[in-house]
Write a protein that binds this DNA or RNA. Structure first.
Lengths: 187, 187
DNA sequence: GTCTATATCTCGATAGAC
DNA sequence: GTCTATCGAGATATAGAC
């Protein structure tokens, strides 16, 4: 693995365990097996590293979600596969998923460029727009529906993370919670 | 007026704006109008201050929620008033509400004592237990239902925070989202 | 309890050899 | 690109007068 990747991987591990404040760049470098100066060769500042790790992680997640999308499916099917794939990815990448949330409730969020934000939400907003056009949702503000969708994913992830289920039971929980969610927000 | 309160208020403001990492104790002291040493008289370490601020904030929230509870109400009414009161408080105390979430996704959470955690969740767990006994919820794991309830509050708060509604429209959103939530989780 | 002054230390970041 | 060595800043925390 190249050094940049090693640094990102080490940063993820340590940020999740000790927080941004609790992880000095020196420890990240050591964990990554690189020299202190090397870290600053790849990332000009610590904040740059934090934001880059966020963008990198979101890219990984979105890449996975894209592979699970089938344009020929119905809107409901595509929404469900987005929901299910998010939870599967989150279950297989617990640290990454936790990090995204940690980052989201931090002032570093403001440092993500509009361009990156747009890239990261394109998939979701695209489906949302179609759903609004087809008027499948209850007449509520789109941003409220978006919020509810997103937090339902987090809630289910939180449960899946704490309960230690077999693969098939996990799939069942994902199915059921999506059905509940869908019934709640559609007409 | 008292210095301890001033320090907590200043810490809240700065933590929300700049994060734990981005706020030195020196700035907190200055913002509070007290000397640097005074801060360490009340809080042995910076971490102590962070945890104390969390416990203090949760106490404020729970105190408010308690005043809105009426033991003679039906279970659904009490759940609804808990839901509505949480959102009203969150709307009137945006920084405090944001801080609770920020803290929740930080390693400092581990430093909250079991005793304090129990105190802070007593009201919610009490209602949950009654609901389970009366079998009003769908047959799902209680921790999953609890997660969904909690995150629905955050989702709605997020929307109320971003949209700038009049008081009556806000109440309407709270009513509607609770009705949706209740329909989703009950039999 | 509150202040001033300061000790101690660690961190983020740089310089420069290879 | 990667390393070693190190600097300067600024952080937490303490000491001691009042």
């Amino acid at each position: 693995m190249n050094k940049e990747r090693e640094i990102l991987a080490a940063a993820l591990k340590l940020f999740v365990a000790y927080g941004f404040h609790g992880t000095p760049t020196s420890k990240i470098a050591r964990e990554a097996g690189v020299a202190n100066g090397t870290l600053f060769h790849y990332f000009k500042t610590k904040e740059d590293l934090i934001v880059a790790l966020y963008n990198h992680t979101k890219e990984q997640l979105n890449g996975y979600l894209l592979t699970k999308q089938d344009e020929s499916d119905s809107l409901e099917s595509r929404m469900k596969s987005l929901y299910a794939a998010s939870l599967e990815w989150g279950f297989e990448h617990k640290q990454e998923f936790y990090f995204i949330q940690q980052f989201h409730f931090s002032p570093h969020l403001a440092k993500v460029s509009e361009e990156d934000k747009e890239k990261q939400s394109r998939l979701h907003t695209g489906l949302m727009k179609q759903a609004m056009e087809k008027k499948v949702f209850k007449s509520l503000p789109p941003s409220l529906i978006g919020s509810i969708l997103g937090s339902h994913v987090y809630a289910t992830h939180q449960y899946l993370d704490s309960a230690d289920l077999k693969t098939e039971d996990r799939a069942k929980v994902i199915d059921e919670t999506f059905a509940m969610l869908w019934a709640m927000i559609t007409k």
